[in-house]
Nucleic acid binder design. Structure first.
Length: 481
RNA sequence: GGCUCCAUCGUCUAAUGGUUAGGACGCCAGGUUUUCAUCCUGGUAAUAGGGGUUCGAUUCCCCUUGGAGCUGCCA
């Protein structure tokens, strides 16, 4: 049994797409699971669509996810002579032929067929050109391509690892261009030559390739090569159930990473699109995924890319991070929000992060959320009054509270027992927790929803001027009333 | 239009001939709480339709319907 080799073969036309990430992940998992190798190949055979720097971007993204390849990247544009050689070999065997038809002729042909409600297909116009005519036309520099000579009325079958038996009649196949007039191969030639040349045992790609797989099968047999196994993955769909594309908003993984989705969370999420472990476990590390992955657990039908679930799982991962790790990953978002981290003790930042992390779905939300720790909040007086409280009551309880807090030493604020102290003080003074705690919390955060007042005070407590800040904010609140 | 693939809650999915059709996200309600979030409890919600095969179909077969993909000298 040959060593398992899978590959991820994106074309460098843009950033790595979430669908590409899923495909790469599955190819990676299958290789690792079988102690095989994972290869990266860049399919840059379309000069017009190739984007400068895209290949590097894709490689960077793959590395950020820990999807390390064992071989490559191999660039198809550097292997042009190989494809030409093989295309010519096919011509000499009669499995392919030169074609000199102009784009105009092809266009007219296609239009005519469409008008007649026929499937557009090349009419083999150039199939039987005389050998010397071909030679003269080529040597005179006439543009030409090499086309696959699809045999008539043959049923082509292959067994897909996820879909099972698939068969198509060769009558429905077009005489596909193999080598373009610019000397570059088309996908169809390049993929077959390379997968063979690189000893790829399992071709793992999106379902959109099913219709062209029979052409590839034909090529393998024309070359006399053994075909690799195929696994066509279900498509990733937008909410409208269409194939996910750039039009559907964010599809570049880079954008998700930018917003503060964790690579681990994205991988975990994307793994469950079209695959599941058949257990109720939902959280998997990359290593665990390798353990349990298999094509027998891959679904046939497309999967909608559901942001709600991504948010949920990302939040889960954020809550599981150690505080040091969280800080390391999130600090740039804090800085971007204008917070000068150098001005604050690390302990303070850690406490702030610990308080807000459980409300976070993604890192990019942090700046907005923690502002009140770094500058005095602005809010209206109405917010200060608890739903069961009154303006006067709020004012007096704030005043009493202020007096009480003044009596405490700065060191009391982060001992962890401020809560029980204040609560017993509230009880002694015949106040209710709501009419004290609500305005206190609002005075500190300026928000209708925030962490509790004790937690906020606990964080401020590590600052030398913590007590001052707290009293100042209570005073500000009082002034509003 | 032709070809191919697909079809369980709104979404991701489990159940490969016998289950009250299970879980997760979302949503709703309750609990905890000064609020939000977290957390816990509960609820809502699905086998597209019709024929077969079978003692018995989500499951196997056929048809219909629906959806999607492909149909380029793009990948």
């Amino acid at each position: 049994m040959a060593k398992v080799r899978t590959r991820f073969a994106p074309s460098p036309t843009g950033f790595l797409h979430v669908g590409g990430l899923r495909t790469a992940l599955f190819a990676f998992l299958f290789a690792r699971k079988n102690n095989g190798e994972f290869v990266l190949r860049i399919e840059d055979t379309d000069k017009a669509r190739t984007v400068e720097g895209a290949a590097e971007g894709i490689i960077t993204s793959l590395k950020e996810f820990g999807l390390n390849f064992d071989d490559g990247p191999i660039f198809q544009s550097e292997r042009l002579s190989l494809y030409k050689k093989y295309a010519e070999e096919l011509v000499s065997k009669g499995d392919a032929y030169y074609c000199f038809c102009t784009p105009e002729r092809l266009d007219a042909l296609r239009k005519g067929q469409e008008a007649a409600k026929h499937a557009p297909k090349y009419d083999k116009h150039c199939l039987n050109l005389a050998k010397d005519e071909i030679e003269t036309r080529i040597s005179s520099g006439e543009p030409h391509v090499i086309r696959l000579n699809v045999p008539a009325a043959k049923t082509i079958r292959f067994t897909d690892l996820v879909h099972g038996e698939i068969s198509i009649s060769s009558n429905d196949l077009d005489d596909q261009v193999l080598l373009k007039s610019d000397g570059y191969p088309t996908y169809h030639l390049a993929v077959v030559v390379d997968d063979h040349d690189m000893n790829i045992t399992h071709v793992i790609r999106g379902e959109e390739w099913i219709p062209s797989t029979p052409k590839h099968i034909l090529l393998y047999s024309a070359f006399g090569w053994e075909s690799p196994q195929h696994a066509h993955l279900p498509l990733l769909l937008s909410k409208t159930k269409k194939k996910l594309s750039k039009r559907d908003g964010d599809v570049a993984v880079k954008d998700y990473l930018e917003k503060g989705y964790l690579p681990e969370a994205m991988l975990n999420f994307v793994a469950f699109l079209g695959w599941n472990p058949k257990t109720e476990q939902e959280v998997f590390s990359l290593g665990e995924l390798i353990e349990v992955f298999g094509f027998d657990k891959v679904n046939k039908s497309g999967a909608v890319f559901d942001l709600d679930k991504l948010d949920w799982i990302n939040g889960l991962y954020i809550r599981k991070l150690t505080i040091e790790d969280l800080f390391a990953r999130i600090s740039r978002y804090l800085t971007e929000a204008g917070i000068d981290l150098g001005k604050y003790p690390q302990e303070f930042i850690f406490k702030v992060l610990n308080l807000e992390r459980e409300r976070l779905k993604k890192f990019s939300e942090i700046g907005e959320r923690v502002q009140y720790f770094f500058k005095e909040p602005e809010y209206g007086p109405a917010l200060l009054i608890w739903k069961k409280g009154s303006r006067e009551g709020t004012k007096t309880s704030l005043a009493k509270l202020s007096e009480y807090l003044k009596s405490l030493d700065q060191s009391e604020f982060n001992t962890g027992n401020l809560e029980s102290k204040i609560k017993s003080w509230i009880a002694e003074d015949n106040l209710t927790t709501g009419e004290v705690l609500w305005p206190l919390r609002v005075a500190l955060s300026g928000l209708a929803a925030s962490p509790g007042p004790f937690e906020i005070m606990d964080a401020f407590g590590v600052l030398p001027e913590g007590k001052e800040i707290i009293l100042k904010r209570i005073q500000n609140a009082s002034n509003l009333l």
